[in-house]
Amino acid sequence: MKKTSFVPAALLSVAMLLGFTSFASANSTYIIDTAGVHYYAGFQISHLGFSTMHGRFDTLSGTIKYDDAEPTNSQVSVTIKASSINTNMAKRDAHLKSPDFFNVEEFSDITFVSTKLVKMGEKTAKMTGNLTMMGVTRSITLDTTLINIGANPFSKAPTAAWSARGTIKRSDFGSKYGAPAIGDEVTLIIDIEALKQ
């Protein structure tokens, strides 16, 4: 019986392994479309038990490592500039940037890094991740929906869009000022469109 040479067999194994790995991961990196400002990071909070106050952050960036073959292996990383808070009133925004609330001079970024994705429906999932706000990191879970993935009808660029909704308690992040008159519970609304790299 003819013996197989060790070197070619090893090379073949490495080549197969590389090919398999490349096929199995099928990762696509998407970057949030900041140039086109196709994103929205908003929040809702009770104002003195009367109205619901709406606000948003105007500047954010982020990356989605999307696993086409197994979406639950995907990873999300988003950074929001806390100083970009906008509630459509300069005086209130200045107060929200102060140490009473977001303390933006001390903690300039709000970050979210996903740690786990659990598929719920065909296009929905529960995304758990670490939210760091005002220097405090807490695990939160967001309900996410894949809105669409495919070619942009105009630019033909591969594009994907997701939405995420969730609720957090700001006191968990050390923001207790004015609570409970100014609500402790904050609803998060994040909609993003991202371009494949």
Binding site: P99, N103, E106, M134, G174, Y177
Partner: peptide
């Protein structure tokens, strides 16, 4: 006003 401070203060207020 602010409740009990956290064990490891990260913010100036704490």
């Amino acid at each position: 006003t602010f409740g009990l401070p956290v064990a490891v203060p990260v913010a100036s207020g704490q």
